[in-house]
């Protein structure tokens, strides 16, 4: 589908993807990449100018308004700012979608309690949103989303307003709901870390176009676009220790060591590569820092290494490592 604003400003251009039941799709991109518009197209709040969104075999934009409204109850949504009603208690907030669907009060009460229980907030049912922490408020919002028995949950930067620890809690809850209820999810985020921790599939958006898509491990290991590469690299980027950084110089004049960053995308394991450098190339490698994460049977991450500076060290490094799926970039020279 494509979505246009005004005459020829395209918010989305030829975006195509499928989400199968039970999957968690992450849509990543920088702000202004068209993520929010895309999400709003998914529940019919925006109508694409070209192409269409079909949900469970039915095309959203062909539905009459009343049916579309009913359909939206099957597609729940949570938000960065939670959007709870401040003058309703947690329980009453969870009951809201049920009231709108015309569910009888008793049934709605029971259902809302069950949903609050599911997110672990039964003890806060009489609390007002103002009395809840960010994490608790998002849990109430998730319970509210669950109240209408959705088939699909849309998450709009759902953890961006939360601290790192709470973010992990909410991600764990979402993963749990995905496992236990088989709830399909589409989430938009600017953080690759969330995709890595939660999603099964990923779509990378850049200026309204899809630049990468597929299973998370495949995309992480073999990113096709510069955008994805930079997002993934940023995610696994190890910082060069400051004590090292302070000693670095830009030119090799008078330097004894060379500091380089190795970026692993799909290398089978880190150690054999480093061991190989020592054994086959006779380089005395010392590791200054790094982060490595196992992902889909391979290794993803970066290592910061330092080597004695000799003739063509950098060229030899590149020659040896590039065929093994390790990218090399020069950090600097140390005396």
């Amino acid at each position: 589908m494509s979505k246009r604003y005004g005459q020829d400003v395209w918010a989305l251009r030829h975006v195509t993807f499928d989400v199968n039941a039970g999957e968690i799709l992450g849509i990543v991109g920088k702000s202004g990449a068209g993520k929010s518009t895309l999400l709003r197209c998914l529940n019919g709040l925006e109508i694409p100018d070209e192409g269409c969104v079909s949900f469970e075999g039915r095309v959203l934009k062909e539905m009459p308004p009343v049916e579309l409204r009913d359909q939206r109850r099957r597609i729940a949504m949570i938000f960065q700012q939670f959007h709870l009603l401040r003058r309703r208690t947690s329980l009453e907030n969870v009951m809201l979608p049920l009231e709108m669907a015309g569910v009888r009060s008793n049934t709605a009460h029971e259902k809302a309690r069950a949903c609050l229980d599911l997110v672990g907030l039964s003890h806060k049912e009489n609390a007002y949103p103002g009395e809840l922490s960010g994490g608790q408020a998002q849990r109430v919002a998730i319970a509210r989303a669950l109240a209408s028995d959705p088939h699909l949950l849309l998450c709009d930067e759902a953890t961006s307003a939360l601290d790192p620890e709470t973010t992990q809690d909410i991600l764990a809850l979402l993963a749990h709901l995905n496992h236990t209820l088989g709830l399909t999810m589409v989430l938009i985020t600017h953080e690759m870390a969330i995709v890595r921790d939660l999603c099964t599939h990923v779509v990378v958006l850049d200026q309204g176009r899809v630049v990468d898509q597929g299973r998370v491990d495949e995309v992480f290991v073999a990113p096709k676009s510069e955008m994805t590469k930079s997002l993934v690299q940023h995610l696994f980027n190890a910082r060069v220790p400051r004590v090292v950084m302070e000693r670095l110089q830009d030119t090799p004049q008078g330097a004894k060591e060379l500091v380089a960053r190795l970026f692993f995308t799909g290398a089978q394991a880190a150690e054999p590569v480093i061991a190989g450098l020592v054994r086959d190339e006779g380089m005395d490698v010392s590791i200054l820092g790094g982060t490595l994460d196992p992902l889909g049977g391979t290794i993803c991450g970066t290592l910061i290494i330092s080597l004695p500076l000799k003739e063509e060290t950098l060229t030899r490094l590149n020659h040896y490592l590039t065929p093994k799926g390790v990218q090399v970039s020069l950090v600097g020279y140390a005396p």
Binding site: N43, L45, R69, D70, Q71, R72, R73, I75, A76, M77, F79, Q81, H83, L85, L96, P97, M100, A101, R144, S148, L154
Partner: peptide, 18 residues
């Protein structure tokens, strides 16, 4: 009121009256 409240209500399938 935050605009998001309207979006949230819409996403719940709210009618205008709701």
């Amino acid at each position: 009121l935050p605009d998001g409240l309207l979006h949230a209500a819409q996403s719940m399938g709210a009618t205008r009256r709701h």
